[in-house]
Design a protein around this nucleic acid. Sequence first.
RNA 1: UGGCACGUAGCUCAGUGGGAGAGCACUACCUUGACACGGUAGGGGUCGGCGGUUCAAUCCCGCCCGUGCCAACCA
Length: 880
Amino acid sequence: MPAELAKRFDPKPVETRLYQAWMDRGLFHAPTDGTRPRFSMVIPPPNVTGSLHLGHALNNTLQDLLARHKRLLGFDVLWMPGTDHAGISTQVVVEKDLAKRGKTRHDLGREAFVDQVWEWKAKYGARIVEQLQALGASCDWERERFTMDPGLSRAVREVFVRLHHQGLIYRSEYLVSWCPRCTTVLSDLESPYKLVNGKLYRIRYELVGGSGAIEVETTRPETLLGDTAVAVHPEDERWSRFIGKRVRLPLLGREIPVVADTFVDREFGTGAVKVTPAHDPNDFECGRRLGLPAINILHPDGRLNENAGPYAGLDVAEARKQVVADLDTQGLLSGVRDHPHEVPHCDRCDTQVQPLLSEQWFMRMAPLAAPALAAVREGRVALHPKSWENTYFHWMENIRDWAISRQLWWGHRIPAWQCAACSEWTVSVEDPSHCAHCGSAEIAQESDVLDTWFSSALWPFSTMGWPDETATLRRFYPTDVLSTAPDILFFWVARMIMMGLHFTGELPFRHVYLHALVRDEQGRKFSKSKGIGIDPLDVMAVYGTDAMRFTLTSLAAQGRDIRFGMQVMEGGRAFVTKLWNAARFALMNLADYDPGARAGEASLYDRWIRHRMDVAIADAHAALDEFRFNDAAQILYHFVWGELCDWYIELAKLAFQGGDEQRRRTAQATLVAVLRGALTALHPIMPFVTDEIAASLPDADGRFLMEGRYPERGGPLDAESAREMDTLVDVVTRIRQVRGELELPQPTLVGVTFPSAAEPFVGRHAAAIRALARAAQPRCSDEPPSPTASVVLVQGWSLRVELDDPRFVADELRRLDKELVRIDKDLVLTARKLDNPNFVERARPEVVSAEREKCAQLESERNTVQDRLAKLRRAAGGAA
RNA sequence: UGGCACGUAGCUCAGUGGGAGAGCACUACCUUGACACGGUAGGGGUCGGCGGUUCAAUCCCGCCCGUGCCAACCA
């Protein structure tokens, strides 16, 4: 029995109720013993400290769309959800919390602090999951994973140990990017460059023995405390006489050599550069080449250490001020100028990163990158949009070793133990009791943890139980699609490909969809720190989740960012409402619908709308196959609004209001079928409103849309029927145009006269023409038109709209003049082409003949219009 | 600095080697029994600029300008 639908759709209660019902029914759970085809994805695990932002909303809407789409195609779908432990972010959050109580993590000690983080996670970690659920995400929550779960932690250890044994993980002293606030090393990717209004200081280094000085320029004068050389270009004549001599380091008085190295840019500054191997990447390389010592002047917390002599204890900024002042008073500062330049900053806390020499664990990337590069190059993994592949190649070809250790407490502690007796490392999955090298029991585990991305790189298989050969892994790995933000292409996607290939021998996914960046109305990137952003939960509260999902989907064009302001939501909401109202109309007319009754022969209108639905759904599927989400949304929007509502429902009213019982029954059957088809097709984009409506349809059987299938295609619409429907649409549209152009008062019923050749057509569609064009009963006659008629050409017929009022003659003359101008304009363009012998000879024949046809058509129209104009003018003149 | 995108109606954006499209906004008319978050019609664009290829360029190519992303970065 059809239920009544409320006058307005109220999203909130429906969303809560339906989501719970879907969960209760277990619709999101993917069985491992299924026999149907399978489809799987892993969610990009959001940061456990995070909350849903619009980028997540977009990405997860699209993934949910794919998941539901595949279910409707009959796949067993696994969408694996979970969160990651976000080492630095989470630790920072909990530390801030502690700071409010005047404590640091060191007050608690490692173990107690980690307990504290787990507590925090238990309390707030579910927030992001709840938000995903509010979005409608149909993840298999029974399988939810966290990167620090025992199973995933075991996978991390397993991978670390295997890579270490394979020589792909090593420990080494290296110049790393160091965040003094977080007191940890950062990877290159975690330290983006930002423009800083720095200064360039010119400093004199006096030659030992006193015959002159070398001037160098630097943006970080305080690093001179760690200088171990001054370098010049070997072929630089200005400085060649200094090479091999020694200069006196200002302030500290240390003697350091002048060396030659080709890395020096002769064009820059004085052409001489101070060398600080412990605190600058270029200098580090130079120092290695020339065997220079490296003097570390920094404490991990960013203050200067004892090597800085009198400056020890100052932080970098203070030291810089002091050093500059001292240089100045000693007359060694010969210039200062502004020098804006790019300096790496900590991705998490925005502190300036300090290059620092330290012992770290590294992963050797080149051997892992090679097969991952080949996989994309050979198309075994496809990136969408394809334009990202170049970026991927470039990065992978120039890949550098990955610093994987982090000086944090929250994360996967590195499974390596150093022996107090022999200093060797023992690396093992199980905690060892003694040194593998000398047997000593005095071993201590490395205190560092692994970069969070190390565990994320294993996500597609660690979530499925690897290294065990689980049923889930067998059935759902490798996955089909990964959808994610382009800014983590290297952080995450590339590393997953490398790890997947290395450890499972398979690519972790076939397709990578890199979604658009969501910006605000001014085109700015959303940013937590700058307070720029729209909370998707606010959007959902105001407009409804379906409206937001639809809007985001319709804006998700490949290769383009999304500018999102609240007002772009209006369209999505209007569409939800339109669908709702169409359903209300249907239900009003389905009160006595009998699903069991044999439907009679379908009318042209019935067959047409079913066909249009088939086409729309097929087109939408083709769009989804190519990740053209916006096209899919637009195709279905146009079908529902522009065809179902604008035409079919208006035509169905005739069947419902007329007295023909058989026509009414077939229209009912068609309406139910088409509405259910439209709801099913839209369900992946707008799951809530569609399921809510579907449950009210008279053919509802208690199952949710997701448990069903897309409608099966009917036969094609025969050409003659298609043409007839086109003609009807044209006729109605042309009459409406005349009404509009002549500004006829809306309630006026106009008379319409067709040529007698149109009699069969008019006989079949008189009711439709009357209703849709607001016309009186159409007539058929070949008599010449009366002077007050407006004549339009449609599908070869000369159609008359009877105005019956001489006042409209002037309007009609104006309308015909306008028409003539348009025709003439087109005619000139066409004639110009046809007069060009090159066109006639070289253009494709079908183009030429089409042009000829058009020309003939235009000429005939022109004659008719001119003829009509002449007659009207004569009549008007005669009357005057 | 290099690579890659993008620049189309007032706004947000589709699109294509053979007469420029949608939604919103705007104008006019319409409170017709699904819907004013609506209906019908209409106005509005040298498709960033300059060259080139072509019978034909908004589309292909080159250069330039503007915007963005990615990568690198000279101390």
